[in-house]
Design a protein around this nucleic acid. Structure first.
Lengths: 266, 266
DNA sequence: GAGTGGTCTAGACCACTAT
DNA sequence: TAGTGGTCTAGACCACTCA
């Protein structure tokens, strides 16, 4: 009974290790510097490589490290702020903030996207009048990528029901970026009523991962945007942002520089 | 030369496993149902438990699964949409959307927050006139949590420089929720000019994790908000949202129900 | 106390990058 | 070809929940 029993909370090794490394990064390393390799680090800290890797994974998730197979582990620069909401009432392509159209194809929207395209736009549009979109109707699928400071940060799939762009004839631009631009141009003719957006965590599909120069399954921020017109949802965009390097910004008041915020250890 | 060489891309086992499980979840499992335990699943698929766990981790990251130590792995319900931007031009506490003040203390803002508090508000406010905040000045730190449908989804630290709320006397409410409410009340007296927000991926600090009923290091979405007045940045909020269960929504057009979007396998 | 997920180990091999 | 990070294994023990 004399034992003082001081909060026996055995902190996991990898957690403690993460915090130790985090401090070391702040103090002893410059951005871009390469760390010792995993086997040496593990030996130096007296843990198994798997444990060391668990700590590194955390730090990578927090945007502190960058790991590349065959190369090594380097100290990551602060996350870049990528404006997502500033273009508040514009169609995609209205302003040139790093987006690059790749191509456009015709196909079917995945179920989740179809649901968004078919959903009512608000309390007013309930019932049988609004949904000008059937789940199995063809949609134009525009692929775009976005780069900031020479780095690919996002890949997007933009789903545009054929009904939204009746003026588009498949003949004028059979394929490639030109066709993508044609779809965007037609879209910009419509009057945009509003848009709503959502952000969630996901993992990169194989194709997105390749586009973003990451491994499949890498953590990404999924930004889903609905473009609304009087007639309903005119288009849905699903953009995949690299979660390790990006900070999504929703600026109400112009360009604002927000500096990197490192998470402090508990 | 007769060999057809069909894309020798050896898909990682855990990735394939993830996709197999993902399909099984769609077809054979209902929300809330418990999966067989990890040792059995690993045996059933003929892989080591660590490999099986890698697949489960991915699915948990995508919000498809929920794992609780000592209990088991269950099928997660679709992510709940949490409105983050709808309160577009309001102070925290203006509308009651699930936030619950916990307490308020006085202390120093961490460096990253201090930078935001001290930063100029825009191109107009450059130079020496704006920053009414010194890095080592005391701030009120208000803690709040947010619940949706009975579930804790977010923990927030709201940093309010003492200079922003001169009317606040420490006497009227010495501690606890009452004091937190007092700070919020004073804040609401000010005229809000605008706000800007950013979202990034992070990992839960130990205290946030406890608040959110997760383990330390769990993936979270960090929402940083600056509240701007004529005088500069009046307050900064850093909110930590559970990334596994939440989808942040930024609605321009009222309440919109967006359904869960499962990511399709590559 | 039985059963669950969480942590950790020591080793092996593979895929990729650079030289 | 040497060196890096990525995958995988088979096993052990620990922390937690619940009957």
């Amino acid at each position: 009974m004399g034992t003082t029993q001081l909060e026996t909370v055995p902190e996991p090794k990898y957690w403690h290790l993460k915090n130790v490394l985090s401090e070391a990064l702040d103090q002893d390393f410059a951005v871009g510097e390469v760390l010792p390799n995993e086997r040496e680090l593990a030996a130096r800290f007296g843990v198994a490589r798997a444990t060391l890797r668990q700590a590194l994974e955390q730090l990578e998730l927090e945007g502190r490290l960058q790991r590349r197979r065959g190369v090594g582990t380097t100290v990551a620069p602060p996350r870049v702020g990528v404006d997502v909401g500033g273009n508040r009432h514009g169609w995609p392509g209205d302003s040139v903030d790093g987006w690059q159209p790749l191509d456009a194809t015709e196909g079917l929207a995945p179920a989740a996207v179809a649901a968004l395209l078919g959903a009512a736009t608000g309390p007013a549009a309930a019932g049988a009048n609004a949904p000008a979109y059937a789940a199995d109707a063809p949609v134009h699928i525009v692929r775009r990528t976005r780069a900031t400071q020479g780095q690919a940060v996002a890949a997007e799939l933009l789903y545009v029901p054929a009904a939204s762009v009746p003026g588009l004839t498949g003949i004028e631009a059979p394929s490639g970026p030109a066709r993508a631009r044609a779809v965007l141009r037609e879209l910009q003719r419509l009057v945009l009523d509003g848009q709503d957006r959502s952000v969630e965590l996901g993992s990169a599909r194989a194709d997105d991962a390749r586009e973003l120069d990451r491994l499949p399954g890498a953590p990404v921020l999924l930004v889903t945007t609905r473009y609304l017109t009087e007639a309903g949802t005119a288009a849905v965009s699903v953009a995949t942002y690299r979660a390790d390097t990006c900070r999504l910004t929703f600026g109400d008041s112009g360009d604002v520089q927000i500096t990197h915020e490192p998470r402090v250890a508990s």
